[in-house]
Design a binder for these strands. Structure first.
Lengths: 367, 367
DNA sequence: CGGCCCGTTGAAATCGTTTTTATTTGGCGC
DNA sequence: GCGCCAAATAAAAACGATTTCAACGGGCCG
């Protein structure tokens, strides 16, 4: 063999070549160097499967590494490579005044992402943000200060400054939701247009003609998608639209209740409600109840099923189910693949929710 | 002045002393060194407000730092100090089969912790765990591999292996909940004994004699606390206990419903229900409804209010409110103080929930 | 007036990696 | 048998901070 280390010979001459200090505590690359007699450079290369290292050498080094349970220090790697091995997730924090149920599905998103990151050297760091502007600010800090190697966020707006910024600076990210600009980026989304269409269409088929859409703030991209689907259901059925029954607000139960009350006191009140999540749905149910109306008789409600409790509502409701944790997992793996250099064009997936029928949604009474 | 840097003189002699390379990109300690003429050692000390540095020097260095917007690189600090500047939060992931509502309050806990960490160099890293055993495993890895500087976790058991381990190895942590061993550690807790007592006592005062306690798994410390409070209410009222009406399970709506159904088909069915969270409560309500019973007439329910939606239940329920996000914030600040060297004895706080009366809880009908 | 101490700063080592560059050795061709 | 090339490995220089120790000058004491 050629350049094999000859540590005995060298030491015999009293030369101080190749003599890393004995490691204490956790094994480092130096520990392996002492153990195997190879230099730390070779160790590093061997562990990275570099082609310049002999197979025998690799085997020996890997064996030693396994023996002492060596794991590369993220600190050292991080300093040298400039990577952080952190994935930042921008988590919206419920505003001071609105604590209700807000963001409950984030637990599932986080656990999904976390699952995807398992086995990779990446870790999940949570950064709370107050709103989209704050989100942009935080994203900027993450990029400039090099706090993370990639970002994940949701609450995508039709025109999203965070997406624009991150694409501009070329920083890796993945989003839950799509903006309306034709840009390329890793994302997972829900087919909200279809979901709203399906829900509305189902109510129309049940005989409803006046249907309300309880929607989030229309700066959000998926709010617009929902409006699109809502309208398509009417136009395909050759019916007059119900644009006057589209209301927008936060996703709380309070908003659902006040919306139901306000809408029902209109000239032509709705008999059907297409809700945006289980929280607002609960509010709508409470509002209808307060008006003395019975769901399933005087009105019908259909909703997204974000935390799987609609089955226990009174009455149980038909919902559009979404595997939120699975969306999160996909989101995490997309970002990992993006970080590994994959093209973003392949990193997109749109989930179509599953209809869970728990009620006839047929207009029994009138209004 | 004594040892002031004389960079011109030195350079005039062509000596290569004190000559850090020009920094590119983000300003580092070297950038400041060049800018101010002081050595990186002095810069570091000045920024740490070391007493060995003159005030004038500190001022000059700080001014330069502010000017270029210097922020110390966590990477560099981390490698040298051995710290990670990460706080690990062990987040229970809903098990495969039980997705319902599980862990929804974690969003609030996380945002609370995150708020507490703001302004500190620490960042919040989420680690999902499947159960307590997995939690111990993850905690071990965090300690051994030095993944974080401190850990936060909840779901404390009466006898908690994670607490035992972390105390044994002297690793900083803070918990949501207390174990039953008389150990010293930073924690935040809810006065569950009182909460269960207050709820039970209120139902007793309303005329209820047969009361069910819907409880989590009794390996959990707070489950035992709840049983204690539950029993105290009966003994203080000189009534026969209802130990036969204590049921334990997961915190899902499904469990609430099945419990209600099972309990009501007993010999002496309960007319009052003390629930553990809003999810199980929803299930209990659904179960009672299925039996044709009306809450407020045939039965009464009282619950913890973890995500503030009980007001929209049918009927609205009296609950024990907890400021979950505030608990999280306290938890975060306790851990920070612990990391700063504070004694754990001062780092403990027990929250007593606030009773939100939304219903009479008076037994109107019989059973 | 000389030595010692003290106050202030600088130089250098260090943390654990990666990566570039240098060195060694054997084989091969002539 | 000599020189060159390629293969394999070692050495050294980073990355950005902290910390120990040395250096340097001035003031004070004898």
């Amino acid at each position: 063999m050629n350049g094999r280390p000859q540590i005995e010979t060298v030491e015999a001459f009293g030369m101080k070549k190749h003599n890393p200090k004995p490691a204490t505590g956790r094994p480092t690359i130096k520990t392996l160097s002492i153990l195997t007699g190879f230099s730390i450079a070779t160790i590093s290369k061997a562990l990275h499967d570099s082609p310049v290292v002999t197979q025998e050498t690799k085997d020996a080094i890997r064996k030693a590494a396994a023996q002492v349970g060596y794991e590369a220090s993220l600190r050292g790697m991080s300093l040298r490579t400039g990577l952080t091995y952190q994935i930042a997730v921008l988590m919206p924090v419920p505003s001071e005044t609105e604590f209700e149920w807000d963001g409950v599905e984030y637990t599932q998103i986080l656990s999904g992402i976390s699952l995807a990151l398992e086995g990779s050297p990446y870790r999940l760091a949570v950064h709370v943000v107050r709103d989209a502007e704050d989100g942009l600010e935080v994203a900027r800090r993450i990029v400039i200060q090099g706090i993370a190697d990639g970002v994940i966020f949701s609450g995508i707006r039709a025109q999203d400054a965070r997406i624009d910024y991150l694409i501009e600076v070329g920083f890796p990210f993945a989003t839950m939701g799509r903006c309306r600009s034709p840009l390329q980026y890793a994302h997972v989304d829900v087919d909200s247009e279809w979901a709203a269409y399906a829900a509305t269409q189902r109510l129309i088929a049940g005989g409803h003609r006046r249907i309300a859409l309880i929607n989030p703030d229309p700066v959000l991209s998926y709010a617009l998608d929902r409006i699109d689907g809502f309208r398509r259901a009417f136009s395909e059925a050759d019916l007059a639209d119900c644009d006057d029954l589209i209301v927008a607000g936060d996703l709380t139960a309070r908003f659902g209740k006040s919306s139901a009350l306000a809408l029902r006191s209109q000239g032509e009140p709705p008999t059907g409600f297409v809700c945006v999540n289980e929280s607002t749905t609960l509010g709508v149910l409470a509002g209808l109840r307060e008006l003395g109306l019975t769901v399933g008789v005087d009105a019908d409600v259909i909703a997204y099923d974000d935390i799987n409790v609609s089955a226990y509502f009174s009455p149980p409701l038909t919902t559009l189910y979404l595997p939120v944790a699975q969306l999160g997992q996909r989101l995490g793996s997309f970002l990992l693949r993006r970080l590994a250099g994959e093209e973003t064009s392949a990193l997109a997936e749109v989930f179509r929710p599953e209809l869970l029928v728990r009620q006839a949604d047929r207009l029994v009474g009138g209004h």
